[in-house]
């Protein structure tokens, strides 16, 4: 396993809708599918707003009117590519040091008029600095996380064998 796969989490899905719709639901209706347990701020999530241009903000609007910007749009090329930053630290708080943020790249590929493959890669997770593996496990967990765990354990094994 190379370093790239270790510092990224990748997942994909095949959606039976046209590519334009897949892109629109992902970027303009984020709150309709986002796991409401995973957001910053204390009040419940009301809306997720994506400013649709490179450099645009992505922020949550809560039911009490408060807002929280947690991402920047890094690429916006409808209907094929959407890349945004992950300005969230390993304690699931806002990360203000932009050097320590990872990014999420979402690629949309039309496999037919009503079939779109959506590939999501959360990459550069090691930029979060110390404890970055925790972020990888939080977003990837499951089999991806177990793979990382296995690699980490095996690495440790090699280390102790060497010493």
């Amino acid at each position: 396993m190379n370093t790239d796969t270790m510092t990224a989490v990748r997942t994909e899905t095949l959606v039976k809708v046209p590519i334009e719709r897949a892109f629109k639901v992902f970027t303009e209706e984020m709150e309709s599918w986002w796991d409401p347990d995973h957001h910053l701020g204390d009040a419940p999530l009301a809306e997720m707003v994506v400013e649709r241009h490179v450099g645009g903000r992505i922020f949550d609007r809560h039911t009490d009117g408060s807002e929280c910007q947690w991402s920047r749009v890094l690429a916006y090329e409808p209907p094929t590519l959407f890349v945004f930053s992950w300005d969230i630290n390993t304690r699931w708080e806002l990360e203000t040091d932009l050097q320590k943020t990872s990014e999420v790249a979402v690629t949309f590929v039309a496999e037919g008029p009503d079939r779109t493959r959506v590939v999501l890669e959360h990459r550069c997770l090691d930029r979060h600095g110390e404890g970055w593996e925790g972020m990888r496990d939080a977003v990837g967990q499951g089999w991806a996380g177990l793979e990382g765990y296995t690699a980490a354990v095996e690495g440790r094994d090699r280390d102790s064998a060497a010493s």
Binding site: V9, T11, D35, L120, H122, A138, Q141, G142, A144, G145
Partner: peptide
Amino acid sequence: DGFWSRSL
């Protein structure tokens, strides 16, 4: 699955 698979 974890967060992203669940979200997708």
